[in-house]
Design a protein around this nucleic acid. Structure first.
Length: 154
DNA sequence: GCCAACGTTGGC
DNA sequence: GCCAACGTTGGC
């Protein structure tokens, strides 16, 4: 199975790239996703070794700020049945989980964040998934898009 | 199963 | 803070 690329969104006030880099082994569970399309990516498609662009949404400016790598593929999101978690969902149970998460390890902070404005302005990124479906927190990224965005960060 | 009402996301 | 886009819920 060949390596794929993804873009994960996070509001930096809730969880920033710096927070990820501060974790033990720079590794965190990507939990709390409560959207079915994003869930399907996490459960069915995201694989160990895949590349992740870490995007700050609701930020000034919104931008890709770092890269990460998937260290554990989809498994049940146990925060769903924790009533004290941020996004409890009583319909999801250990026997019949609805929501899934993966683990990622932060790799590199971008020298220059690649802002949404720059992404929108780049001819090679006109069809990037986040432009077509603006409100999903997980997006597949083409290999070409990945390299273009990383080039723009230098 | 339709669809109106409602809630959330997230750029601006 | 506004509001467009769009996902989800729930009455029927």
């Amino acid at each position: 199975m060949s390596k794929r690329y993804w873009l994960f969104k996070s509001e930096p006030t809730a969880y920033s790239f710096a927070d990820l880099m501060d974790e033990n082994e720079q590794t965190a569970e990507w939990d709390g996703v409560r959207n079915y399309q994003a869930r399907n990516f996490l459960r069915d498609e995201v694989q160990v070794g895949d590349g992740v662009l870490f995007y700050h949404s609701n930020a000034d400016p919104p931008a890709v700020v770092g890269t990460a790598v998937v260290t554990r593929a989809g498994y049940p999101d146990c925060t769903a049945w924790d009533p004290d978690s941020e996004h409890p969902d009583p319909k999801s149970t250990p026997d019949n989980p609805i929501w899934f998460m993966v683990d990622i390890r932060g790799e590199m902070e971008l020298e220059t964040p690649v802002t949404l404005a720059k992404i929108k302005g780049h001819p090679a990124l006109q069809n990037i998934s986040m432009r077509k479906r603006p409100r999903i927190s997980i997006h597949p990224i083409e290999g070409k898009e990945w390299s273009v965005i990383l080039q723009m960060s230098n």
